[in-house]
């Protein structure tokens, strides 16, 4: 007999922690979707405002003349990591109630390569391609169309071709810090130092590339 509902553990934490709102049942699914909708608009607006719908800006990371993308992603990841850590530590939000997917390292690695090639060739990541398409860029629309064809093709052939690959290299629900056996705080510190070094290094690379005579956008 199941005495406790499935989210009983979350309710237990509810006496201590305040968030996250949706997994703990503080807000319903409808409100969750509405909030997500507005955050999505803000995200798209930011991508457009910072020029990420321009393929040259994104491809610049790989050619060495513009590293804004790298800086933005590093900053976003570290800001989120520090924010989550502190919210969890001070009992405002329970980090265990946050969803993150299980890790399958083999398909993740392959998918990462495919994504990188798509990034270099097309000049978009999935998010920016949608923004570009809706700001009227034809290459963005083509990119979105290609992504949709890929999604449908993958879904239709999943059982026959991809199921075993998808499930290979299972590592369970891990985060890097636990996997390396260090504390979350130490990992964030290391990541931040790596980011600082990367920021400095890419500045040097960018200066060298853009100072060449034959450089052109």
């Amino acid at each position: 007999m199941h005495i406790f509902s499935e989210n009983f553990g979350y309710k237990l934490l509810k006496t201590i922690d305040m968030g996250p709102f949706f997994p703990l049942g503080t807000i319903g699914e409808e409100l969750n979707l509405i909030i997500g909708f507005f955050i999505g608009i803000g995200f798209g607006f930011s991508l457009e405002a910072s020029g990420f719908t321009n393929t040259r800006k994104l491809a610049g990371v790989f050619y060495g003349y513009d590293f804004v993308v790298l800086k933005v992603f590093f900053t976003a990841a570290i800001t989120a990591a520090i924010g989550l850590f502190l919210l969890n530590y001070y009992g405002i939000m329970d980090i265990n109630a946050i969803f993150y997917p299980k890790t399958f390292w083999i398909p993740t690695l392959i998918g990462g390569f495919i994504m990188a090639f798509g990034f270099i060739i097309g000049g978009f990541c999935p998010g920016t391609s949608v923004c570009a398409a809706f700001t009227g860029k034809i290459d963005g629309m083509v990119f979105v169309g290609g992504a949709l064809i890929g999604i449908v093709g993958y879904s239709l052939t999943y059982e026959q071709l991809w199921a075993s690959l998808r499930m290979s290299g299972a590592m369970g629900k891990v985060n890097i810090a636990k996997w390396m056996g260090i504390s979350d705080g130490l990992f964030i510190l290391i990541l931040t130092i790596v980011a600082a070094i990367a920021f400095y290094a890419v500045t040097l690379i960018q200066q060298r590339v853009t100072s060449k005579k034959d450089y052109q956008l």
Partner: peptide, 23 residues
Amino acid sequence: IIVIMLVGAFWTFALNEDNRRPV
């Protein structure tokens, strides 16, 4: 940006997770 992130990172590093009040 780097300075702000480093301050935050040192903050998280200085906090000992074991000290967090358990449920």
